[in-house]
């Protein structure tokens, strides 16, 4: 199973500068664990004990996972996951 993950500029120090990486996982939590195995330290920047960090947004195929099942959101082959810092609009 291959899931494409878009990494924001601010976290590319962990991925050797790569903007898009591939990882596996049946759920978002599994995917984050797999990312951390490949790129140690990445997990702590994305999640904390309470779940997704406050200023991190994660989108599954453009939908905010907080409105799906959060870290328990199931993933399928070919899904696209985007990680972005929360920024202001208006």
């Amino acid at each position: 199973m291959a899931i494409e993950v878009q990494i924001p500029t601010i976290l590319r120090t962990y991925t050797g500068g790569e903007k898009t990486v591939t990882a596996d996982g049946g759920t978002l939590a599994d995917l984050v664990a797999d990312l951390d195995a490949k790129f140690p330290g990445l997990k702590d920047r994305v999640v904390d004990d309470a779940g997704l960090r406050r200023f991190v947004n994660v989108y599954l195929n453009d939908e905010d996972v907080r409105f799906l099942d959060g870290l328990a959101t199931p993933l399928s082959d070919g899904d696209s996951v985007t990680i972005l810092p929360a920024v202001a609009g208006g």
Partner: peptide, 19 residues
């Protein structure tokens, strides 16, 4: 939610995020 180019997300650290 608009997803801009990378420049806009160019924060120095994640704690500078904004909700």
């Amino acid at each position: 939610e608009p997803r801009y180019g990378e420049l806009v997300y160019g924060l120095r650290n994640l704690d500078e995020g904004f909700v």
